[in-house]
Simulated assay, not measured.
Amino acid sequence: MRRADRLFLIIHALRGRRTALQARQLAQTLGVSLRTVYRDVADLQLSGVPIEGEAGVGYVLRKGSDIPPLMFSADELEALVVGTRFVRAFAGVRLAESAKTALLKIEAVLPPDLRERAAHTRIFAPVWRDQHQSDFAAMIDRLHAAIVANHVLRLDYRDESGRSSAREIEPLCLSFWGGAWTLGAWCRLRQDFRNFRPDRIDICESTGEICVESAERNLASYLRAVGGSMMDHS
């Protein structure tokens, strides 16, 4: 977790409390050592954040320095909690970690009744990853990064029948179908839009080339071409 995120979460974990929050609780929530919590709190105090207390006693925000809670309804909050749980379970590692941090930030600024509701929602997406699933999560991260950076990719790809082919593609988007991912892309071999299953990609390498976007090969054109079906027809 970035230091800036930790500092944000410390401030908001203290908001609205009438009793001191122990440093040990902060350390457990943030997944850091007590020494890190002490250092972060000291830095916040030096920068002017009105935190009172000390190591071994606990910390509170000075009265009058509270921050208004986020205006979520109970149902809106539950949707956010469930959504972040699904991202943690099914997305790549980078997005999963970001979802965890985002949820901590959301819960940190909630009033107690909504925080309690968030803690007890009964829709789960258990995170369980063996080595194969960890490798797949890493592949999702790699593809996502290529989409963001507009990198052309070279793939060794197996179709539904197990036949292999070499492809150069311009990646456009990732879609999750509640059990399977697909990568939408412009395929230079087929000279058309295609959908690729990440679990059928044996090798994925960047060519070092940057995609030059055009009206015929951008995301909007891809979405028009697939017509909402996005079936795998590579």
Rank of each mutant, 00 (worst) to 15 (best):
L183R: 01
C204S: 05
A79R: 08
A27T: 15
P198A: 02
G64T: 09
H233K: 10
S164K: 13
A137F: 10
V212Q: 12
Y157E: 02
R24E: 11
L110A: 06
L34A: 10
T29I: 03
P69E: 05
A13F: 07
M230C: 12
A89W: 06
P112V: 13
A13M: 10
G53N: 04
T101I: 11
W181E: 01
E97H: 14
H233Q: 15
W128S: 09
G179P: 02
E52D: 14
D232L: 15
T101M: 12
M231G: 08
D130G: 10
S65M: 05
L30W: 05
E107V: 08
E97R: 14
L80Q: 09
L44I: 05
M230Y: 13
V93H: 09
V152G: 01
A125I: 12
P112D: 07
L110C: 09
D113E: 12
E78G: 05
D5S: 13
K105T: 11
R3G: 09
W186E: 04
R129F: 06
A138E: 04
D159V: 02
R158H: 13
L44A: 06
D159C: 03
R17A: 11
W128F: 08
V57F: 15
E205V: 15
A145T: 14
Q28D: 13
D40E: 13
L153P: 00
S134F: 09
